[in-house]
């Protein structure tokens, strides 16, 4: 059973929670005050796993996930600092076509995922930015603190290996760091973003009759992006993940029911962003996961994401309406 949980955890790491775990390039670029962003995201994930340490499971698993998420972000300063408030509602499906060793389990799950709500507060380099100030804003170093809470609101069946929801609270704390190189002029920007983060988990109190305690999951996400022209950028992406080991305790006996090693993976990829017009932007990315090979198992997988973001600012919108 443990390995199914691990499998699910890995799949989850690459799918629904991954959406929150992997921010993407230029997500933390400070926005003008009172900017609204509505995002629609598709993340398609495939996980190829091969157990190497446990001999009670043989063969590879192919787990495919299709996660859709709606997100809303608003830049609403607090105490004179730029703050991005964000809410994410994921949904989707997870399936595997591989034969599962326990015939009673389903190889498919769908439904709503866990809702996440959080904020990223700029600490250095980006005071609140009324539209007028963005005209002369030139970031150099930008350092922020992000907190994102995920609630166990998603679809969850304690007797299934695969779930969209996690049945556990979690909180991600991050420190996005952005460094602008060169000229802050559309078409000329080069940005390095590094976001260390840790996600701490509450207990999942019912997974096959067991309570699951999960260790923190550490991550460092990095993007080096460069404008291709005034409306498009290209990014090289890298993420390092480590942690998330599980300890299971039987709810019936209170006795330890086993442990599962955490993840240790690196994700490389590239992404592309394009501003279609003053309101609409599209981001396309592909990430390939390469396990560090930390025993007891080796993980491989990939994510392909497409995100549409519709942004507006009341003042700018009124101006554009007037001029058009």
């Amino acid at each position: 059973m443990k390995r199914y949980i691990a499998l699910a955890a890995f799949s989850a790491a690459l799918s629904a929670p991954a959406f929150a775990q992997l921010d993407g390039a230029r997500v933390n670029v400070p926005l003008p005050k009172n900017t609204n962003l509505v995002g629609a995201t598709y993340v398609g994930g495939t996980a190829n796993t091969s157990w190497s340490a446990f001999n009670n499971i043989q063969g590879d698993f192919d787990i495919d996930s299709s996660i859709y998420a709606l997100s809303y972000t608003r830049s609403q300063p607090v105490f004179g600092r730029t703050v991005h408030w964000t809410a994410i509602l994921p949904a989707g499906t997870v399936r595997t076509d591989s034969p599962l060793p326990i015939s009673a389990t389903n190889a498919y799950a769908d439904g709503l995922g866990d809702v996440s709500i959080g904020a990223t507060v700029n600490l250095f380099g980006a005071p609140e930015l009324p539209v007028r100030e963005t005209l002369r804003y030139e970031p150099n170093w930008v350092v922020a603190l992000g907190v994102m809470m995920t609630a166990p609101t998603g679809s969850y069946d304690p007797d299934e290996v695969l779930n969209i929801g996690s049945n556990q609270w979690s909180t991600r704390i991050s420190a996005p760091i952005m460094k602008n190189f060169g000229d802050w002029v559309p078409g000329r920007r080069t940005i390095l973003e590094v976001t260390p983060s840790v996600r701490v988990f509450g207990d999942n109190d019912d997974s096959f009759g067991e309570t699951v305690e999960q260790d923190p999951l550490y991550a460092v996400e990095a993007h080096l992006s460069r404008d291709m022209n005034s409306d498009a950028f290209f990014s090289l992406d890298y993420t390092w993940l480590d942690g998330g080991a599980e300890t299971r305790t039987s709810n019936a006996t209170g006795m330890p029911a086993g442990t599962t090693d955490g993840l240790s993976a690196q994700i490389f990829g590239a992404s592309f962003g394009y501003k279609v017009n003053d309101n609409l932007s599209v981001f396309i990315g592909h990430q390939q996961t390469i396990s560090e090979g930390s025993d007891p198992f080796e993980l491989r997988g990939s994510l392909t994401s497409v995100r549409f973001v519709w942004g507006w600012h009341d003042v700018i919108q009124r101006r554009n309406n007037f001029l058009n």
Partner: peptide, 13 residues
């Protein structure tokens, strides 16, 4: 008003 002032002030800056 607003950004118009900053846009103009930027020139003098």
């Amino acid at each position: 008003v607003g950004a118009g002032q900053v846009q103009q002030a930027r020139k003098m800056e």
